[in-house]
Nucleic acid binder design. Structure first.
Lengths: 222, 222
DNA sequence: GAAACCAACTCCTCAGACAAGCTGAGAACT
DNA sequence: AGTTCTCAGCTTGTCTGAGGAGTTGGTTTC
């Protein structure tokens, strides 16, 4: 049998499996390290590393002198993982939800500094849309969109967007390889229109324009 | 309660700090175990546990015979943690974004089964709104809102909502302790109106009603 | 030039020793 | 009796030395 994973990783998986199966309840203590090592047939330091790995994932917590305790039944949703596998259409719909609302909020909360950022990022985006490599263009586009989110002054929305960014970036790069047409034309104008609506404090207009733009993107990929 | 950090945890934090500061770039190799141990003034097994912890958090990856590599600049956002600390107003704005869009999508995608779920959950909610304890009422309310999200048939939005649920639940319970007035009156009607708009395939109406309802909730807490 | 070889690196695992901290039972005290 | 003190025996924390196993890059060999 080929061992693809180190013993410590296998031990961590085994512990996670047993926790999931209800062998140890929430808040309960696991058997001691020496005991576990004997049970799984590995050395004590191997068990320690397995426990440490699950501690990093916030499933276990070890207290010196007391023991190792279960603090969560399952690893917290790894959004990176979820997003990596998610259908790009679903991600775009999530993004649409967040960004539309962010545009609406931004129209009432934007500061002069936000407007300055809009100008800079839009200028960058225009330059990049002309003859830069794809990844520059994508970064410039994302920078503007992030500026819109930031202007909503809601840290939760910003973090949500940042979580989505890697997935969106990959999807955009894939898209650009297939379809170079839509890169130049009305796109820059659509972005400027969103910024204008936010600048003019028009929540509904900003939201509508953001929705329209992202709906267009969604209809390209689906 | 004071909490001492074991050396291995401190070492993990130090490594994370150095990675964040750009000392080692993405994909780059860290110095060897013996080297790092000497640098931080700890034993080799301590370094190994620190690395294992960061591996559990998907920041590092160690390959036997090759070395330890950086695979992410920062630990994936622990959303449980983020939400626990987040301002409830921000969470409600996030929920508003997701749920409004979900209502819109649901109006075009809802199945007969979804409509049945609406009827059941609305009936439960009505019953619970009359004389059940607070936590029943909250669960019944959340069940209906989850049904709306589910009817959008977008797994990402559903997972997003589920991530928010614990935080929303706590906030609702806190709210009900302060203000028992708004529990009965127009609330049930507002929920039924959302369900009706989805049933009648009216995306804009469904979205508007969801927005209105959640805006009302937000204005109560802020 | 290409394949085989090898040495020097890396992480992986184990065992043993001791330190540090917690817990509960019993002794000592009030 | 009730409270506090003490300590033995458990726990995890840390270090070290010894090999095992895999990777890498240079050297030798053909």
């Amino acid at each position: 049998m080929i061992r693809r994973h180190p013993l410590a990783e296998q031990a961590a998986e085994e512990l996670l499996r047993r926790i999931g199966s209800g062998e140890w309840q929430l808040g309960q203590k696991l058997p001691g390290e020496t005991n576990l090592a004997a049970q799984l047939g590995v050395g004590r330091s191997t068990i320690r590393e397995a426990v440490r790995e699950l501690a990093g994932r916030r499933v276990l917590e070890s207290r010196q002198g007391s023991g190792v305790f279960v603090i969560a039944y399952q690893a917290a949703e790894d959004w990176d993982q979820v997003l990596r596998k998610a259908d790009i259409t679903e991600v775009l719909e999530g993004r649409l939800a967040i960004e539309t609302e962010a545009a609406r909020l931004a129209a009432t909360r934007r500061t002069p500094a936000d407007l300055r950022t809009f100008r800079y990022t839009l200028a960058d985006r225009k330059k990049a849309s002309e003859k830069s490599p794809d990844d520059w263009y994508v970064e410039a586009d994302l920078a503007f969109h992030r500026a819109v989110i930031t202007a909503a002054h809601n840290a939760l929305l910003t973090e949500l967007f940042d979580t989505f960014v890697p997935r969106i970036r990959r999807a955009m790069l894939d898209m650009l390889k297939l379809d170079h047409v839509h890169r130049h034309r009305h796109d820059q104008a659509a972005h400027e229109a969103i910024a204008d609506a936010i600048r003019d404090r028009e929540p509904e207009l900003a939201a509508a324009r953001a929705r329209e733009h992202l709906s267009a993107v969604r209809s390209i990929v689906s």
